[in-house]
Design a protein around this nucleic acid. Structure first.
Lengths: 183, 183
DNA sequence: CAGAGATTTCAGAAATTTCTGAAACGGAGG
DNA sequence: CCTCCGTTTCAGAAATTTCTGAAATCTCTG
């Protein structure tokens, strides 16, 4: 499969950005290709389009699957696997955030709790700093857990409202009457 | 400077996590060390504490400075540079988010706009997908711009209120009376 | 402005990550 | 239970990133 110049440039950009996102170039390119392709693609097509080895494609797809970033499709009479990305971009964002949290935040939270468990180490400053960090992360993951439940439409509205909500929270108490009344 | 077992473990953990966060092990360790040290440290002390080369420390500190993650201090009669992290954890988070946005999001937004500029490429699906992605990113960065202005205290309150706010935004319109009234 | 102390730069070494081709594996159909 | 088609695994090659020691640079101080 030959790429159009537009596809080409898009794919190459995501390849380059890949390293900043903690995935490698190939994985970035594969994802970008699936993202801008209207039809599901099989491994052979991807291999050809990106000019990489078949095994590299296999590893890249495996990586993307471990991130839950691709969906598998099948066609009758064809036993090859075909891959796509979800149509809903918000679903993609949600997955991305969830996975990054799992890989980048959770292990640290676990480690911090573990360190606190070990009991007083006679290093007050370090202990205080660790506790503070753990509390911060817990607050943020708690907030995240709330947001996670929202479906796309509500999330969009929340983001649109952003500024107004922000302006409301004042230093004197942060209590919004219509908020505190309910529940 | 010899590290306490607690410091040791904390530092090593951040070193390991570093790779997942797009920074290298040494940079992660240096940051962690500064974070749990009550006093500012100079390059020589860091070098010794982490058992790395002096030049590696220099590069790591330079990297951290480019991320705006460390503060420089000086003591009278000592012309060496001493480094610390901010006391306020929220300030650290803000910096982290701002820098990651700059490195991981902005270049892509620019690229997407650029691709759209190049005009119709006869690939409707790809064009639509790119436009959709750009719009999503613009919405998120817009929301981020709002949040960025909030100082620590308000942010904490917003996060604490999270669930209630989320529950309010309903499908029928998302308009919260007390919100819509004020500008 | 010479010398000492401190930091930065840089080319190559070391370590790590990514990529490939070949071989192993898996499972549907005959 | 063999064969074919497709996928995965894996050991080594290639590429990239990180780290080091030596030299260069920078900047106070006397």
């Amino acid at each position: 499969m030959a790429l159009t110049p537009l596809q080409q440039e898009f794919v190459l950009h995501f390849g380059e950005m890949g390293s900043r996102w903690g995935i490698n170039r190939t994985v970035g390119q594969i994802y970008a290709l699936l993202f801008i392709s209207s039809e599901p693609l099989n491994a052979e097509t991807i291999t050809e389009a990106l000019g990489i080895s078949r095994s590299n494609t296999s590893m890249g797809l495996k990586e993307l699957q471990s991130w839950n970033l691709v969906r598998l499709k099948h066609f009758p009479g064809d036993r090859r696997d075909y891959f796509t990305t979800p149509d809903d971009l918000w679903e993609i964002v949600r997955t991305l955030v969830a996975e990054r949290k799992k890989r980048e935040i959770d292990p640290t939270l676990t480690k911090l709790r573990e360190l606190e468990m070990q009991g007083p180490a006679g290093d007050d400053y370090a202990e205080a700093r660790i506790a503070e960090l753990r509390e911060l992360i817990e607050m943020m993951t708690g907030f995240y857990a709330e947001m996670e439940r929202l479906e796309t439409e509500r999330l969009v509205k929340l983001m649109t409202l952003g500024s107004r909500i922000a302006g409301l929270i004042d230093k004197t108490g942060g209590m919004i009457p219509s908020l505190t009344k309910r529940k």
